[in-house]
Amino acid sequence: MEVVIRSTPDEVASTVADIVEHYVRGGPTTLGLATGSSPLGTYRELVRRHRHDGLDFSSARAFLLDEYVGLPKDHEQSYSSVIRSEFVDRVNIDPDRVDYLDGQAEDLAREAARYDAAIAAAGGVDVQLLGIGTNGHLGFNEPGSALTSRTRVKTLTEQTRLDNARFFGRVDDVPRHVLTQGLGTIGEAGHLVLVAAGEGKADVVAAAVEGPLTAFCPASVIQLHRHTTVVLDEAAAHHLALADYSRYALRHKPTWQRF
C-alpha cells in the first residue's frame, strides 16, 4: 500500500487524475467509478484534461460502484445520473460502454449477479476509484460486511443516510437500500485508489490504513490488496502514525515506480 499525502484537496484531485490518465493513455482501460463527494475533484480535473490536453477516453469502458434501490435512473441523486453529469457526458467515453447497476430491477439478486458477470467478461476493472464513509464503509459495504462479499443488496446505516441527506434535502428522502459491489468484487480490481480529504475523515482513514483488518471497518480490506494507493490531504492524514514515513517514502520513490 502506498499512502500519498498532498497539501490540498486540489492536489489530491490532480494526483488521482494522474493515475487515471496513466492507465487511459496506456491503451484500452476499464475504469471503476465511484460517486460521493470524494472523487468529484478528480472527475473535474479529468474533464479539464480531456478538453484542454486531449485526454482521450474513446477506448475506455467503465463500471459504477453502487446505486440506490428504487430511484429511477434519471433521478438527480441516482448514482447513474450523477456520474453521467459529472463525468461520462463531459468526456468522449462511449455511453454504451458504461455499465450501471439497475436499482429498479425486478430481481435485484439477479441484477447483482449480472453485474459481477459483466465485470468478469470485461476482463476486470483496471483501476477502481474509491471514497470512504465516516463509518468505514467502502462502496456501500457497511460495517459488518463480509470481506469476501460479492455485489448484492445492502441496508444503509442511519449514519450513512444522515451523511447523504445533504444531497437529498432531508434524511427521509434517502433510500434505505442500495446495490453495491461487494468487498470481494472490489478487491478483484487491478489497482485500488482510495481518496479522502478533510479532518472529518482522519479517524476512519487511520482505522482503514493502520488499524486492524476487520469487518467493523470494511475499508480496512484494502490492506489485503496487492496494489492500493491512498491519496489524502493533510487534514485526512492527520491521525496516521506513519504519515512521516509515507512522506519520506514518496520523496525517495524510485523513478521507475511511477504509480
Results as ranks from 00 to 15, higher is better:
R170L: 05
V174L: 08
T214W: 03
A208R: 05
L183N: 05
R170K: 13
E199D: 15
E199A: 15
G184I: 11
V171P: 02
D173R: 14
A197S: 15
D163T: 09
L213I: 13
G198T: 04
D203C: 05
V195F: 04
E210T: 04
H191V: 13
V174Q: 07
I186P: 00
V178W: 02
G190M: 07
A189E: 10
E210K: 08
E199T: 15
D172M: 05
T185N: 05
V178L: 07
T180M: 07
V174R: 00
G198C: 07
T185V: 11
A206Y: 05
A196F: 01
H177K: 13
G198L: 08
R176I: 02
H191D: 04
G200T: 10
P175D: 08
D172K: 08
G200H: 13
G190T: 07
K201G: 12
H191Y: 12
N164L: 11
A202V: 00
K201H: 01
H191Q: 02
L194W: 01
R176Y: 10
H177R: 13
L213H: 04
T180P: 03
V174H: 03
A165T: 07
R166F: 02
A202G: 02
V204M: 14
D173F: 11
V195K: 02
N164G: 12
V205L: 06
G182E: 12
V193C: 09
R170A: 13
E199Y: 12
D203T: 14
T180E: 13
G184T: 00
A208W: 03
N164V: 03
L192M: 06
L179N: 07
V195R: 04
A189G: 11
I186M: 09
L179K: 03
G169Q: 12
V195N: 10
F167I: 04
V209K: 00
D173W: 05
G190Y: 03
P212I: 04
D172N: 10
V178E: 00
F168W: 11
A208I: 01
D203K: 11
D173N: 11
T214A: 02
